[in-house]
Nucleic acid binder design. Sequence first.
DNA 1: CGGCCTTTTGAAAGGATTCAACAATGGTGG
DNA 2: CCACCATTGTTGAATCCTTTCAAAAGGCCG
Lengths: 242, 242
Amino acid sequence: MRQEQEFDAAITIRCMSCGARARAVCSALDCQELVRLNDIAHTKYFKPGACILAEGESSSSVFNIINGSVRLSRLLSDGRRVVTGFLFPGDFLGLTLDGTNSITAEAIGDVEVCRMERKKLEGLFVEIPKLEHRLLEMTVGELISGRDHMMLLARKTLRERMATFLITFENQLRESDEEPAVIKLPMARADIADYLGVTVETISRCLAAMAEEGLIQLLSPRRIVILDHVQMEEIAEGEDLD
Amino acid sequence: MRQEQEFDAAITIRCMSCGARARAVCSALDCQELVRLNDIAHTKYFKPGACILAEGESSSSVFNIINGSVRLSRLLSDGRRVVTGFLFPGDFLGLTLDGTNSITAEAIGDVEVCRMERKKLEGLFVEIPKLEHRLLEMTVGELISGRDHMMLLARKTLRERMATFLITFENQLRESDEEPAVIKLPMARADIADYLGVTVETISRCLAAMAEEGLIQLLSPRRIVILDHVQMEEIAEGEDLD
DNA sequence: CGGCCTTTTGAAAGGATTCAACAATGGTGG
DNA sequence: CCACCATTGTTGAATCCTTTCAAAAGGCCG
């Protein structure tokens, strides 16, 4: 009895110190529920470039991202790729309609996840309805941001896409809390290109032009500083007065 | 008591004769649960072009589409529009994160819906967990088809987009069950253009070219027949050998 | 330090857009 | 019931922007 209490406490503490919890599916849970979720979860690590889920294959696992960035992508038969989004700590991964992954998820850099059996998680829904509530909420959120991205792909100009990307990920990819905020991109130009629906060369040229104009500063290919936030936001929203 | 039974039976029959039920959120429910759902639902009609939900406004209603087609769209400040999708009988509409509509939903042609108070529906989740299960399932489905559409917008060529559109909606928009299947488009060229991320002129030119090649037949601007399904599917998937 | 991969830059080509005009459609009222 | 009008759809020509292909520069790891 005494032993079990200590054990529970230990598990709880593990979640308590989890930096992703505030944003994650578990944010809605109290201590006791957290312990139940812990029973079915364990930590797992992925190396840079590792495949977490492969499009078309079946998987019985679902994941909470604890640390690192994940790239979601889909391929056309001839190799054309779209990056539909990126996942960061707190994001959930792995819901399917029929057990078959609808998308490929790969680690960018080192990734730490909290892995669970999908069946076991679904089993907990009966006991902890909050869990399914929260998951529906998160899925609706993904759906909405997906629509934002459709607007970007269907109607925004190159500059608008780039500005939207930089602003959207600025806080997420910030190196430290100090100003000026350096955006540390974990992903390659090719990932940004496939995310914004253009080519790498176009990305490169656009960033060069923005740097030329003094809108941004390119410390290195993957370290960018936004110099003029106001104008950058105007560009992102298509309100640029040029 | 006797009266109440008859009343319940009448309500159940209303659902029983609903053509949308098989695909809708209510597909998972048994007779008794259907009656409970009926308690909070009522039929409503929208005229062509009528706004069902407006982006940015708040709404306490959610809807099941019973008949007709609905256009989901989003605007940029300067009027650029993206149509993120179309809803057909059985589809659900109205989930939000904070009560504010993330998207505009408008009737294309006459639309019949089954309207509910969001709060009341959420209230039923406790009593009928299947309902929330099904709603999560439908939302995941929307998320996945949204990613398909991102691939289309980001990477597919004009012809591929058009072919994908025609094939995807062929069964949905078919005039009768007979062959050859005539696709009766409820939406205007502008809607298709904003859905495929191109201009109306481009849509018009692409359809004309496809008709020229014998891929399709244009009976009238809104009535199309696919003549070569095999090639059309190849084009849609980017496997065209040309 | 060398080699490989990523990123950048350049020049030419291609495809969708833009702007303009015309044709067709379908709903309305005389 | 038909003619008219406003809306919707089509066609043409020039322009613009991104892509494509090619090559050089830069960065990173062994």
